[in-house]
Design a protein around this nucleic acid. Structure first.
Lengths: 219, 219, 219, 219
DNA sequence: AATGAATGAGCATTCATTCAT
DNA sequence: CATGAATGAATGCTCATTCAT
């Protein structure tokens, strides 16, 4: 066998990708229930049955969309955070991390839109696989954020940094969730400014908690 | 006719409310596109044609749902904030306002769910009236929050408080948006704790800004 | 209320009947699986959604078809057997009953076709209600046949006639089942002649069994 | 090439049989229209295109199924009737033949199910080749049955036996058709007993007709 | 020779909406 | 004023079949 059917495979891969693109775009805009298979046909020119050939069902398509979206999202984050600063105050480090995260937010708005839509609605109960991906993304996202905060406060000692990070990861999540929602509403929110507020807030809380933890430790 | 009209009116009023209740519930859960008129019939037992009689169209129904929801939402807020504290530090005042706001958040989750759904998706483009309500709620909500912050910082002087409030209202919105999203995902987020973080953050920023503004003013 | 909406009801009734006619005809010919809702639309001119309005589903439609068919079938039988002979040999009586039954067979071929189709295939597993009707028809049909045979042999005494009827009802069923199948295959089978054979056979067996039973009773 | 072709042939042969097995089974249960190519793929694991490679079309597949079924059916009958009795009364001989036929009936139920389904419905109009096989089977089956009856009555003289057989073959067909239908309905019909009734009936009619024919001949 | 991909017509069903009474 | 019936477009999905490799 080897590469037998490689060309066919390539065509199939191309179709798959095209469908996923359209589905990600439309579902993010119109929601899962609001997206009909027919509009995907109209957008891609690919016949309905081919979509079913590739994904089995509308739920399967959403699952694939989320899967690919999640992968791309985390890839973008790690890419954005390659070469992190190894010196500087916690505030500086956090700022570096969060500003880059903000850029990811802007560039991955489509994925995040669908993600949050699925988080706050039961529209896709029939796609449990996709919902599982949503949960995974939330959990891994929090873990990722926790790690960022930990690294930013590493100068306070490993133990303290970990403790601080665990506490503040939730705050960070809330911040980025809210940031996204506000981005979507046309409140002409200055994203960068809001990120800086978030950085300031978390940095300040981190400093305070670090001091408290150290004091508790000493006694 | 006599009172036969009033009785009919009462029945009509009851039906109307029942339909709105069901629509609010189902649309918040399944989204606008994901909610069919039939399921509302199934949930209420009221015939489809009666729904059309009352609301004209699905879009009209959503508009009515949002209208009523918005009214209830603001009523709940003003009710929760009757008898605000007239003394105390900005932090204490903010805490009082925000904690009560958190309770409203929890009790009005259904409305907020649908609101944010409409904010982040284009599902209900066909219901521009409802979208207008959404925009209004966002704007009035921000104004309301701004006022809360202003009142909390009123001890810093009227002008300073106003300035501070204008800046931080955005932050507050982001915080409450994020809070809601996080509430919906089952991350076992401790709501009250997060609100306290939010209070701490905004209070601190407010203090800093007040100081800066005063200094600028003096010179 | 009373006759309110009587005209609407009449129209609905008419539509219902028309759909049932078409469904009975087509399903008998093409089978349940082989019958599409679209062809019923084509045959009746009634829109698909109206069919669903009346019957809920394809399975529901089949159930209704069988229900009505069963009622008509038994009505035709009892009608055909009004004024049965009260004298004459068992053979003569059986002949009277069976020949009239044969006429029913010919006139109700459509219903019987669908009935036997459902008996020998699992095509309509998804329509359990219809299958229940099938079972009922088979059972009541056997009971009916048993009663015919009993009445034909009543001159042998009640007990003997009952016993004989119980034994031979199965034979009668097999005969009429086979008769129908052979009618459908274009074997140019002379139906009346075959019925006479069946009458002869059952009459002979009945006589023999009567004699045996009486002998057994005497000893 | 060498034996690579033969091996491929063997594999092809295996696939063919496997497909035919599945098709015979599913079509007998769900009918022709109720059987999709996809379910055959699911049942066999053989790709759809391979089925088309072997049989050209769904109609071709049904034709092959019926062809093979018919062959197997007649083989089973002749096998069951090897070493027929050469002495004994017509009744005894008929009994021997029919009881063995009854066993064939039970073992070939799958084929007979599909056969009768095609006889009583127009489901497979698009497969005229298969319908031709059905007709052939019916005709050859009657001829076969006629021969059995003739052989059973051979002691009455060749001419008489032939005449009797011609008359009663129809009755036999009806009996076996009815037997099969009744077998399929779960009326807990005692098959063997019913066969004995059939034997008794046909034997008696045969005796009567023989006597009549002889008398007619003498005069 | 054998197969994954593709195709478009057709499937049962549901949609939001209108109408006649 | 309220409602069962009707409507036709659209839904998600499956169909038998063909194609490129």
């Amino acid at each position: 066998m080897g590469n037998s059917g490689s060309k066919g495979n390539q065509r199939g891969r191309r179709s798959r990708e095209e469908i996923l693109d359209a589905a990600a775009r439309v579902m993010a805009a119109q929601g899962y229930a609001g997206t009909s298979m027919s509009v995907l046909v109209a957008e891609t020119g690919i016949p309905k049955s081919a979509i079913y050939h590739h994904f089995g069902s509308k739920a399967g398509l959403l699952a694939a969309v989320m899967e690919r979206g999640a992968r791309g999202f985390f890839d973008a984050m790690t890419e954005a955070h390659r070469h992190p600063p190894t010196t500087g105050t916690p505030h500086d480090r956090l700022e570096w991390y969060f500003r880059r995260l903000g850029e990811v937010w802007v560039h991955r708005a489509e994925f995040l839109r669908l993600l949050i839509l699925l988080v706050i609605s039961d529209e896709a109960t029939e796609a449990p696989e996709a919902m599982e991906t949503v949960r995974t993304v939330r959990n891994e996202g929090r873990a990722y954020l926790e790690n960022i905060i930990r690294l930013s406060f590493i100068s306070k000692g490993d133990e303290v940094a970990s403790q601080v990070a665990r506490n503040l990861a939730y705050v960070g999540i809330v911040g980025f969730d809210g940031l996204f929602v506000s981005m979507q509403s046309r409140d002409d929110m200055p994203v960068v400014e809001l990120i800086d507020y978030l950085v300031d807030g978390i940095a300040a809380m981190g400093e305070a908690q670090s001091k408290a933890l150290r004091a508790a430790k000493r006694s």
